[in-house]
C-alpha cells in the first residue's frame, strides 16, 4: 500500500513537472506574441501555480463557482502568463484562447477579471488586494464550516503594502487555519532587490509574530511544494504562510534573477533560446 501511494505520488509530481514546463513555454509564447507581459514573475510563480492547479486544488471547471470549491486568489495579479496558462490547462477556458492574450477585447486582460473569465476569484492588479480578499473568503468558510480551503499567492515586494499586514493580523487573530498564503520570494521587485528597496527580512519572524505558522520551501521543488500544500493530516490551528524561495525568471538562463525581465519581452533570438532551454530541461527530466 505504501509503495502504491509512493508511485501515485510520483505520478502526481511528474504531472506537475510536465504542466509547469508547458506553462513556461506557453506563457513565454503569449508574451512574445503579445509584445508585452511580466515574464520574470510568471516564471517565478509557475511551479507554485502548477502544484496548486494540477496537484492540490479541488475544483470543477464546468462549475467554476461551485460553493464548495477550493479558492485560489492571485494577489500578484500582473503575473497573468502563469495564471492564464494554469487556468487554461485546468480546463476553465480553451487553451487556444491563450493566443488572444492582451489583444483588444480579449478575456485575457493584463490583469485577471472575474466578471468575464471563469476561474478568477477576484479582480487583482493593484498590489496589496489579494490577501484581504482571501481572508474574507476564509472567514466565510469559518462561519459555515464548509470544508473548502483558500490559497493566495502574493509577491514579496507586494508585502510593502500596508493592507497585506492588516489582513495578516486579522487572519492570525481569527486563527484562520483554512488559509494558506504563499509568498513568491524571488527577492526582486519591479526595479530592484526587495532588501535594497524596503527590506522584508526577517520575513518568517514577521509572519510568526502575526500569528501564522511559517514554513520555507524551494519554490521550484514540485514534490516539496505538494507535500506542504496538501491538506494537513492533523488539522492546523493557525493560518499557514509558505515562503517559497524562488528565482525570478526561473528556467530561462538569461532572465534568471534579473530585475530587467520583470516586464521585458524577448526578441526572436532570445525567444528561440528560451524555448530551447525549456525543451532541454524537459528532455533531461
Amino acid at each position: 500500500m505504501k509503495a502504491l501511494d509512493a508511485r501515485r505520488g510520483d505520478e502526481r509530481v511528474e504531472r506537475v513537472r510536465e504542466r509547469a514546463n508547458w506553462m513556461r513555454r506557453r506563457s513565454l509564447q503569449m508574451i512574445y506574441e503579445a509584445g508585452q507581459g511580466h515574464p520574470g514573475g510568471d516564471l517565478s510563480a509557475t511551479d507554485v501555480l502548477a502544484a496548486l492547479y494540477f496537484g492540490v486544488l479541488r475544483y470543477d471547471p464546468a462549475t467554476p463557482n461551485a460553493p464548495g470549491r477550493d479558492r485560489f486568489v492571485m494577489s500578484k495579479g500582473h503575473c497573468t502568463g502563469a495564471l492564464y496558462t494554469a487556468l487554461a490547462g485546468a480546463g476553465f477556458f480553451p487553451e487556444a484562447e491563450l493566443s488572444t492574450y492582451l489583444q483588444p477585447n480579449s478575456r485575457l486582460n493584463g490583469h485577471p477579471n472575474r466578471t468575464y473569465l471563469p476561474g478568477v476569484e477576484t479582480n487583482t492588479g493593484p498590489l496589496g488586494h489579494g490577501l484581504p480578499v482571501a481572508v474574507g473568503i476564509a472567514i466565510a468558510e469559518q462561519i459555515d464550516s464548509a470544508g473548502y480551503r483558500t490559497f493566495v499567492l502574493t509577491g514579496d515586494g507586494e508585502l510593502q503594502e500596508g493592507s497585506m499586514w492588516e489582513a495578516a493580523m486579522l487572519a492570525g487573530h481569527r486563527k484562520l487555519s483554512n488559509l494558506t498564503a504563499i509568498i513568491d520570494r524571488n527577492r526582486l521587485q519591479q526595479g530592484a532587490r526587495t532588501e535594497d528597496t524596503n527590506a522584508l527580512e526577517p520575513l518568517a519572524d514577521k509572519w510568526r509574530a502575526f500569528g501564522w505558522e511559517v514554513v520555507g520551501v524551494d519554490g521550484h521543488d514540485h514534490a516539496r511544494l505538494l507535500a506542504i500544500l496538501d491538506a494537513p493530516t492533523t488539522p492546523r490551528e493557525r493560518p499557514l504562510c509558505v515562503i517559497a524561495e524562488t528565482i525570478k525568471g526561473y528556467g530561462v538562463s538569461y532572465m534568471q534573477d534579473k530585475a530587467g525581465w520583470h516586464h521585458g519581452v524577448p526578441n526572436a533570438e532570445q525567444y528561440a533560446q528560451a524555448l530551447a532551454e525549456l525543451a532541454g530541461s524537459e528532455d533531461q527530466a
Binding site: P132, V133, V135, I137, I139, A140, E166, L170
Partner: peptide, 28 residues
C-alpha cells in the same frame, strides 16, 4: 455574534474582507 466581523481599525482590509465574504456566498 459570529456574523459580526470586526476587523479593527483597518478600512482597506475591511473592504477586501467584504469582497472575500461575498465570494464565500455571504451578503456583507
Amino acid at each position: 455574534p459570529e456574523r459580526l466581523i470586526n476587523v479593527g481599525i483597518a478600512e482597506q482590509n475591511m473592504v477586501g474582507v467584504g469582497a472575500g465574504l461575498a465570494n464565500g456566498g455571504k451578503i456583507p
